[in-house]
Design a protein around this nucleic acid. Structure first.
Length: 285
DNA sequence: TCCTCCCTGTTC
DNA sequence: GAACAGGGAGGA
């Protein structure tokens, strides 16, 4: 569930709890949580948390290893890339807290408690990488642009370029992280509604004017969702345990059969790219 | 380009 | 006790 606004909120709420802290120890508690870099896990010990950042739906923790480890690694930075998928969460617990039922990774911070990465469904993962390994990671290298890092005009032009010749449904294309990074099921449905585009429409067939509306709508919705600290449907919480509030502003997501807030028609449901999709048959042409 | 699978707690 | 939630890998 964590999409761009949720991951951004987690970065913001987690940063004050971990920045500049020294790592006393790190342990993986589930066999699949470390998708890469299990050998680097012990190298984190003695390192310091330099920075948290986000790219698409990935949360990155940048660690400066201690001098001995840095020399052994030949690098001054280790990067932990987390993908939260549906149910990944972070929370800092007091020192001595035992792992919870779904705790997958524990990072002990000197004098600042224990950072738990919990993930009920074990879809989420962490990759521990050197900077050049991150650059060579195919998923990372293929990520599309950040939708909030450019003017709406430029985003619209990017959509026009990328959508040309695409026969797939526009929603399926929006969900593709190589097209634009960070958009998931919720924000794709909401942006398409606000832009008045039927999610099943072939991407290449959407007129340029609608693409401008889509770029504007997507940016507005992502920004507003960040302001509201994300959307909490079931599982999502930020790194302080707080729920987001943007779910209260949904126009279509999760509102199958309810009435369109704009025209009053019943909202319809379909499946696109295997994802639940809700739209207004009247407002979205 | 589309479908299936992964996973588990909640809802029907 | 089945359907459902869904990002992304992998295969048809």
């Amino acid at each position: 569930m964590p999409e761009l606004p949720e991951v951004e909120t987690i970065v913001r709420t987690l940063a004050p709890q971990v920045l500049e802290r020294r790592i006393a120890d790190a342990a993986a508690l589930h066999p699949r949580v470390l998708q890469a870099g299990a050998d680097l896990l012990p190298r984190l010990r003695g390192g310091r948390v330099l920075r948290l950042s986000r790219r698409g739906k990935l949360l990155l923790m940048h660690v400066r290893p201690g001098p001995v480890q840095a020399a052994a690694l030949g690098a001054s930075e280790l990067i932990l890339a987390f993908h939260l998928k549906m149910t990944g969460r972070f929370f800092v617990h007091p020192e001595g807290t035992a792992p919870l039922k779904h705790t997958r990774l524990v990072i002990d911070l000197e004098g600042a408690g224990r950072l738990f990465f919990d993930d009920m469904r074990t879809f989420g993962y962490c990759r521990i990488m050197l900077p050049h390994e991150l650059a060579q990671w195919p998923f990372w290298a293929a990520l599309g642009p950040e939708p909030l890092d450019m003017p709406a005009k430029a985003l619209a032009a990017h959509f026009a370029r990328v959508f040309a010749g695409r026969r797939a449904a526009i929603k399926a294309v929006l969900l593709n992280q190589e097209v634009v990074a960070g958009v998931g099921n919720i924000y794709a449905d909401e942006a398409l509604f606000q832009a008045g585009i039927n999610p099943a429409r072939r991407a290449a067939d959407v007129p340029r004017q609608r693409l401008s509306a889509l770029a504007t709508a997507l940016q507005a919705i992502l920004r507003r969702a960040i302001e509201e600290c994300g959307s909490s449907i079931r599982d999502y919480r930020d790194a302080l345990g707080n729920a987001g509030a943007f779910q209260n502003a949904f126009a279509v997501y999760g509102r199958k059969g309810e009435l369109c807030l704009s025209c009053g028609a019943p909202l319809e449901f379909c499946r696109i790219a295997g994802r639940a999709t809700v739209f207004c048959p009247r407002c979205q042409a």
